[in-house]
């Protein structure tokens, strides 16, 4: 990755984060914390990694992404909007009664959303079904599933992991957002899912650990995924992140899991992100 490419991704990530704030502020509810922790992953996926075309969102040969931690729809929607799947201005209508931007991802109303999700623990199974389907049909399609570290407390995740290894789904990339916080508090205290790396390894995955806010680390991690094609094993990329990343008063604060910024907080957050973007643009 060149310096210019890295900077472009970092600048885009600030726009994705601005969209998260705009969407949740407009909704007066929603989930900014986990949207911001995964914003760099969303940006990397939609602006560098996935083979997709906003002009043809239903292309049968496109790569797929299943947002298993569906409550972070503001992050996914913002990435899709900034990628050109629908107007960025529409993000402010999130969760409104007449909006197509449903509170959790809806594949039938939102262009670019590959699967309706929201009920935790199910997305990895769907992604495995997609990956199995792609292999059955002989299609060169990669499937990405983004999971939360609280979400992996759901037993179905491990049913899906077992299935994925059993059926040798090396076209499946599992991404776990290790932001360390869930609604009731730190994941280590609510229900300790650690060691996540050993669990996925024991279930038959190639495990890669990366800094989820470092684009060089993400590039290296996804390169491992591509190198694993042909190995007959799925890849699990565990990304270490900071919940609320990029907005000072949200960073590391469990209270911002599912709360929208008020007008004042919104203005402050947008100013911080604009300043970060300006700094990147002049560098």
């Amino acid at each position: 990755m060149t310096d210019k490419e890295r900077k472009e991704l970092q600048i885009m990530a600030t726009r994705v984060r601005e969209g998260v704030l705009t969407a949740t502020h407009g909704a007066k509810c929603g989930h900014p914390g986990g949207s911001l922790s995964a914003a760099d992953v969303f940006t990397y996926l939609y602006f560098r990694e996935m083979r997709i075309d906003p002009a043809d969102p239903r292309d049968p040969d496109r790569d797929r992404m299943v947002l298993s931690k569906g409550h972070t729809a503001p992050g996914l929607y913002s990435a899709l909007a900034n990628r050109g799947f629908f107007p960025v201005e529409d993000l402010a209508t999130l969760r409104h009664i007449d909006s197509y931007l449903q509170g959790h991802p809806n594949m039938n109303t939102v262009p670019g959303v590959d699967m309706s999700t929201g009920s935790l623990g199910q997305g990895l199974s769907v992604a495995a079904g997609m990956a199995k389907g792609a292999k059955f049909l002989g299609k060169d399609v990669n499937v990405y599933a983004v999971l939360g570290d609280g979400e992996i407390e759901e037993g179905q995740i491990w049913e899906a992991a077992m299935f994925s290894a059993h059926y040798k789904l090396d076209n499946l990339c599992i991404i776990v957002d290790l932001n360390g916080l869930q609604i009731d508090g730190p994941t280590a205290q609510v229900m300790n899912s650690a060691p996540v790396d050993e669990k996925f390894a024991a279930f038959g995955c190639h495990v890669v650990v990366a800094d989820g806010h470092d684009y060089d680390a993400l590039e290296a991690a996804f390169a491992r995924f591509h190198a694993n094609h042909g190995s007959g094993r799925p890849t699990a990329i565990l990304v270490k992140t900071l919940k609320g990343k990029g907005v000072s008063y949200m960073e590391g604060q469990v209270g911002w899991h599912g709360k929208a910024p008020n007008d004042e907080e919104y203005a402050q957050g947008m100013a911080e992100l604009a300043a970060a973007r300006a700094a990147l643009e002049v560098e």
């Binding site: 049968p60 797929r64 299943v66 594949m107 590959d114 699967m115 199910q122 997305g123 199974s125 769907v126 992604a127 495995a128 079904g129 997609m130 990956a131 199995k132 389907g133 792609a134 059955f136 049909l137 299609k139 399609v141 179905q156 899906a160 299935f163």
Partner: peptide
């Protein structure tokens, strides 16, 4: 849910 995923592939 695997069946759901398979169906989205046609």
């Amino acid at each position: 849910d695997v069946a759901a995923g398979l169906s989205t592939m046609g």
